[in-house]
Nucleic acid binder design. Sequence first.
DNA 1: TCGCCTGATAGTTGCC
DNA 2: GGCAACTATCAGGCGA
Lengths: 86, 86, 86, 86
Amino acid sequence: MAEGSIAAGQLKSLVERIERLEEEKQTISADIREVYAEAKSHGFDTKVMRQVVRIRKQDSAERQEEEAIRDLYLHALGMAPDSSET
Amino acid sequence: MAEGSIAAGQLKSLVERIERLEEEKQTISADIREVYAEAKSHGFDTKVMRQVVRIRKQDSAERQEEEAIRDLYLHALGMAPDSSET
Amino acid sequence: MAEGSIAAGQLKSLVERIERLEEEKQTISADIREVYAEAKSHGFDTKVMRQVVRIRKQDSAERQEEEAIRDLYLHALGMAPDSSET
Amino acid sequence: MAEGSIAAGQLKSLVERIERLEEEKQTISADIREVYAEAKSHGFDTKVMRQVVRIRKQDSAERQEEEAIRDLYLHALGMAPDSSET
DNA sequence: TCGCCTGATAGTTGCC
DNA sequence: GGCAACTATCAGGCGA
């Protein structure tokens, strides 16, 4: 119970929660791989599919990025970005 | 011509399943980050916690193998392997 | 009106200097990758080599501190710290 | 000179080359920071500058990405990407 | 099936 | 000191 006595129970709980979540994440990843495998078995080019998924994901990210830059510029020009909602 | 249409619908379904799964994965990742944040707020060293999680995941045989090679390398470089545990 | 122009030239110069430096940095990174590739082709385990480079860079005091905390955590989780060097 | 005898000299040489290169890289990084600091001292908004640098870098990257996707699609359609040089 | 390469994830570093 | 961006590492997918 001296200095070395950290909150063992608490630590254990936290680590186990993390491990549980990582396990779930692994499961999801496996599911994704499975879908791609299925797609491939139906004759789709998975490489192209991955590109498509990627592009769709980028679209919104890009839009957000653009918006952020615009606000930044407006701010640099001394204008309130808040008034620039689309 | 029907052929293309059928494939299109199938492709759409597959892509959407993947996107749904990736979304779930993102959620899990966020949860994990959250747990680490919580741990930090309780005074734990998250960097070390990550090391611990990693150690628990890694097979001990594998770990020993790596360690042996590393000691060999350190020795070859004229460093004492004993003092170099990371 | 001259003001804006002057600032523009200055800005351009600064940006170009940055870009030049980033380019150099990229080159160095490529060189490093190349050395690792060469090492690999000579039969070295690059993963371990990276560990070794890291160990040499890390201050030993800092290393020991981290190690102490890790052992504490592992102990709290009921694992023998002695067998867990990474 | 038994089993433990790896090519120590070779390893040492490789590691030192890597360390030398990493040192150079650090120097470049410091230079970049310095340029940003200088810019700031001249009244420029470094956050915006970083965005600008980032955008300029993306432009070419994006072009390349687009080209890659195009080749991929052409390939998927059974056409040789090689004949599509711009 | 093994090795290589690319993409995703985690760790480190710099900024606020 | 905390947060965000960048870099380096690691794991999975693809091709030989």
